[in-house]
């Protein structure tokens, strides 16, 4: 089977998953429960995606935990997204560097 067919099938399925709800739901949803559910979904999705995956994201749970702590502190302090993201990577890198020295 050619790789192009695989790519086309993959892309088609992924597109339909995104397109169907966005295109078909044109009415305002009246249900209070459903509205509340949809209000919380962005935050719960991101949280479930981040934990525990973030602890394995650098290939070393110690450096990743230190990077996570840095991200939590800076995010709590209200820093912009890109600052938090770069600081998390920078802290994880420094932690890894220090560990190799010890």
């Amino acid at each position: 089977m050619t790789i192009a067919i695989y790519i086309a099938v993959m892309a088609g399925v992924t597109y339909l998953i995104r397109m169907i709800p966005l295109t078909l739901v044109r009415k305002r949803i009246k249900s209070r429960f459903l509205n509340s559910f949809l209000y919380y979904i962005p935050y719960t999705v991101l949280s479930a995606m981040t934990f525990p995956a973030i602890f394995f994201s650098t290939g070393n749970t110690v450096t990743a935990s230190i990077g996570t702590a840095a991200a939590l502190i800076l995010a709590y302090a209200g820093m912009p997204l890109i600052v938090v993201a770069i600081a998390a990577a920078g802290t994880a890198y420094l932690a890894g560097f220090i560990i190799t020295l010890i």
């Binding site: 981040t50 993201a85 998390a88």
Partner: peptide, 8 residues
Amino acid sequence: YGMFIAII
């Protein structure tokens, strides 16, 4: 992931 944390 750091960016996700900054969002939530």
